Simulated assay, not measured.
Amino acid sequence: MQRQHYAASDLAALGREWIAAWNSHDLERILALYAEDAEMTSDRIQALGLAASGTLRGKDKLRMYWSKAFQLLPNLHFDLIDTYVSPDSVVVFYQNERGAQICEYLRLDANGKIRQGSANHLAH
């Protein structure tokens, strides 16, 4: 399977849109950035007891997870620090409303939708 390659400027723009979508608190706007079969990995998935593996697959499961996140964090807000790109992925480096700095790895599919995401938090 040949991977799609994207321009760095397009990937950086996706990173900015990803931040804007989260800050809008519009779950459907966020989900529109993702492929139907997207998977997301985060230690927060484990902490919420949603999957022992820390990975959820498919938009329905992502919708459930992020809906719960918005209920638990009504003041959720991300401030973009920077974006880092490769030919088919972007890492969005940001700070959340509690001051934590997070790197979100987002790999795209051939249609320009996020097919794999991973929230990476600082190890303590």
Rank of each mutant, 00 (worst) to 15 (best):
L50R: 03
Q116Y: 14
Q2K: 14
D79Y: 07
R107Q: 15
I30E: 05
D88T: 13
A20R: 08
A12C: 12
L33G: 11
L72P: 00
K113F: 12
R107Y: 15
Y105L: 10
K59M: 09
S118G: 07
R107L: 15
S9T: 09
R63D: 00
Y84G: 15
F70H: 01
S89V: 15
D10S: 13
H124L: 11
N96Y: 04
K113Q: 12
H124S: 12
P74V: 08
Q116D: 13
H77S: 13
S24A: 07
E36M: 11
E39Y: 11
M1L: 13
E17Q: 07
L73W: 02
I114W: 13
A119G: 11
D88R: 13
K61L: 00
L106T: 09
Q101Y: 03
W18G: 11
L76M: 03
E97V: 04
W66V: 01
E36A: 12
L14P: 03
W22S: 07
A47H: 03
L27W: 00
H77E: 10
Q95M: 07
G54D: 03
I114N: 11
Y105P: 08
A7L: 08
D43N: 05
A13M: 06
H77V: 09
L108E: 11
R3G: 14
L33Q: 05
L27E: 00
L76I: 02
G99P: 08
R63W: 00
D43R: 05
Y105S: 13
Y105E: 08
S42L: 02
M1T: 15
L80H: 05
D43T: 08
Y6H: 13
Q71I: 00
K68W: 03
R44L: 00
E36W: 09
L80D: 04
A100V: 08
L11Y: 10
R107W: 15
H77C: 11
R63M: 01
G58C: 00
A21I: 08
R29E: 09
H124P: 11
D37E: 13
A12G: 12
H25K: 09
S42T: 06
H124R: 10
D10T: 13
F70I: 00
W66T: 02
E39C: 13
H25N: 09
A32G: 06
Y34N: 11
Q2N: 13
S9A: 10
A100L: 04
E104R: 06
A13S: 12
L48G: 02
A32F: 03
N75H: 07
I102H: 01
N120H: 10
R29W: 07
L11Q: 10
S118I: 05
A8Y: 14
N120T: 14
Q95D: 09
A47Y: 02
D60F: 00
R115S: 15
D109K: 09
L33H: 07
D88K: 12
L80F: 04
D26P: 01
W66G: 03
C103R: 08
G54N: 04
Q46N: 01
T41E: 03
Y105R: 09
V92R: 02
A123F: 10
H121V: 01
L48F: 02
L106D: 06
A21Q: 09
D26W: 01
E39H: 14
